[in-house]
Amino acid sequence: MSSETGDAAPSGPKFSFLILQTSVGRKYLVAITGLLSCGFLLGHLAGNLLLLMGPDSFNSYAHKLTSTSLIYVAEAILGVIFLVHLGLALKLNWENKMARPQKYVKKKTFGPGENIFSSTMPYTGIAILVFLVLHLTQFKFGSVYMTQVEGVEMRDVYRTVIEFFKNIWSLVWYCVAMSLLAMHLAHGVQSSFQSLGIRSKQIGQWLKCGSRIFAFGVPAGFIFLSIWCHLQ
């Protein structure tokens, strides 16, 4: 060994953007885009709660939201977030399949993080993608009615929403999709904190508890609103 200190120092990748070429770096991106999507969900739920205030409040909110050109920027950013999350998750999943070409004849699972939520992540993720596409066609690109609120002509999204949820099968489909979303979030949210290195012995249980409350609370909020709409 050389007498000069540090001669044998390992040389890692030197540029910070190379982080995305590593498995750990890609997991960061999946976690960050997942958490950002959760932020969107929270905002979406807050907006939807205006349904309870009646058609004028909800329609005015929807009109304000869509009449600014910033909505296109926001939609583009959201699109990129979803695509990065989906694309990287699929890539990681494919790499995971490749990492064990020969399967076990007998394999049992008993990890504390192993449950129906964690083992179905790819499937619930794909289901959410299908839901997202249908959701956009059913509401954003769904039937258009017009109304006037305080003399301003605007889309009557309230009517579109109520009409949709009046159909029992639409309601059932929506509740199933929200349950799948809850399953995805039940593992995804707390897993994000682990991937980003935020989890530690001190706050681990708090993070898990908070993540579960969010994971079940937000979809429950959406389900509550859909049932409320059905009963109108």
């Binding site: 498995s23 890609r26 997991k27 990681l92 790499e95 995971n96 490749m98 990492a99 064990r100 699972t109 008993f110 990890g111 504390p112 993080g113 192993e114 964690s118 083992s119 992540m121 593992h187 707390q190 897993s191 682990q194 991937s195």
Partner: peptide, 8 residues
């Protein structure tokens, strides 16, 4: 493979 935080 990559970690999916199942703690197996």
């Amino acid at each position: 493979g990559n970690c999916t935080n199942h703690s197996e």
